[in-house]
Every structure is written in C-alpha cells, then in structure tokens.
C-alpha cells in the first residue's frame, strides 16, 4: 500500500538586517517578496521564514508597543492594517493594500522610536553594568593591591569570572546598546540611511574584539 505523500510547504529563509538599523530596507524587501509570491510566516532569531503563496501587492509597517491588548489589533484592522506577526510581543508587523492611509498620524511616526528605545534602555543598562564589572575584575586581578591580598587560586578565579562577564556583557551590549542608540537617533529625526554602514562596521568591530579576547585568553598570550 502506498503511503499518502505529505505535501510540505515550500519555504525560504532570509537574513534580517535588524529592524533598528534597516527598518525601511526590510519592509521594502517584504513588499517585493510578497509581490513575487512569498508570504512571511515566522521570524526566528536572525531569520525570516517565508512560504510560497499567491503573489500579492502589499505595503508593510512596523510598530512598537509593549504587550498591547487585543483592542490594538482590532483598531488597526478597522483601518485596513492586517496583523502579520509579532516579535516578542513588542514589535508588531502589519500589512495593507497599497494606498491604505498610514498606520501612524502625520508627524507621529517617529514617536514609536521613543517607545522602542525605552524597551531597550533597561537591558542596555544592565549589559553595561555586567560589562563594567567584568572589565574591573579583569583589570583588578593584575594589580599589586589585589595580588598582595589573595593567593594565586583566588586571583585566577577573579580573572576567569571577569573574563566571562566581559564576554557575556559585551555580547549583550551588541544586541541592546546598539539598537538602543539606533532608535534614539531615529527618535531625534535621523533617517539612518547611510548609518547602516556605520553600524555594520561597529557590529563587526565588537565581534572582532570579543573574538580577540577569547583567543587571547585561551592561548594565554596575555591581553
């Protein structure tokens, strides 16, 4: 007996550019993909997962609201904006047919960036604290003041904990402080067209620093 063949949906993945840095770019890309017959079904980490669907003309919009109630989506639907997907209950993606009046009032579109920046402010602060504590531990473990007080085992432990905190805090900073600063810039009216490049360089730089520290620590070549 032949088993019935399961028909899997045809999917494709696209790397997100990071909404804080390239919102316009990603929204235009979604519109282009929708016209080519690809429908967004999931945002997973740094990826967007799209599924084959009939081609449709859509425009997309992003809004930031911390855990909105269902009324939010109802009001948006009344104005012609269909909810597509939400990321972590904070970032909400909508689509509408071209020509639908904007999801924001005139002069009000940048206020959403203040809300977005506020969402990242606290995590960015905590990452900075972790990072600062780590850096201090690493630096202090080499000072004569600490060396005179503790034996080698304790110093190595302080050094190791500091190192772990630096890596952890540094990584967290990339995903909190960078978006926070980008949203702050947007909220004060910058278009962030070219600064995307600046952010890419900063991102790569931070990654390289962390890589260098890990490498230096593992090979014990000193800082």
């Amino acid at each position: 007996m032949r088993t019935p063949q399961r028909i899997l949906p045809i999917t494709r993945r696209e790397i997100r550019s990071g909404l804080a840095f390239a919102e316009e770019h990603d929204l235009q890309r979604l519109a282009r993909l929708a016209a080519e017959g690809w429908r967004l079904v999931e945002i997973r980490g740094l990826y967007m997962v799209l599924e084959k669907a009939p081609p449709e003309q859509f425009v997309f919009a992003i809004d930031y609201q911390a855990t909105p109630d269902p009324e939010y989506f109802e009001v948006c639907a009344t104005a012609g904006w269909t909810h597509v997907i939400s990321v972590e209950q904070h970032i909400h993606l909508f689509c509408a047919v071209p020509g639908t009046p904007s999801i924001f009032s005139a002069n009000d579109a940048i206020v959403k960036y203040e809300r977005a920046a506020r969402m990242f402010a606290r995590p960015a602060l905590w990452s900075s604290v972790v990072f600062a504590v780590g850096i201090s531990a690493v630096l202090l473990s080499g000072t004569t003041w600490l060396v005179s007080k503790f034996d080698d085992g304790v110093l190595t432990a302080i050094d190791l904990v500091g190192f772990i905190l630096v890596i952890l805090g540094g990584t967290m900073l990339i995903f909190t402080a960078l978006p926070w600063s980008a949203y702050r810039l947007r909220a004060s009216g910058y278009a962030l067209q070219w600064s995307r490049l600046v952010y890419a360089v900063v991102f790569a730089g931070c990654g390289a620093c962390i890589g260098y520290f890990v490498g230096a620590y593992i090979t014990n070549a000193g800082w």
Partner: peptide
C-alpha cells in the same frame, strides 16, 4: 486629518 490606528491606540 489622518489619524493612524497605531497613533489612535497610544
């Protein structure tokens, strides 16, 4: 006047 739904909600 245009008041967008996201603005209305907030």
């Amino acid at each position: 006047v245009h008041i967008g739904p996201a603005t209305l909600y907030t």
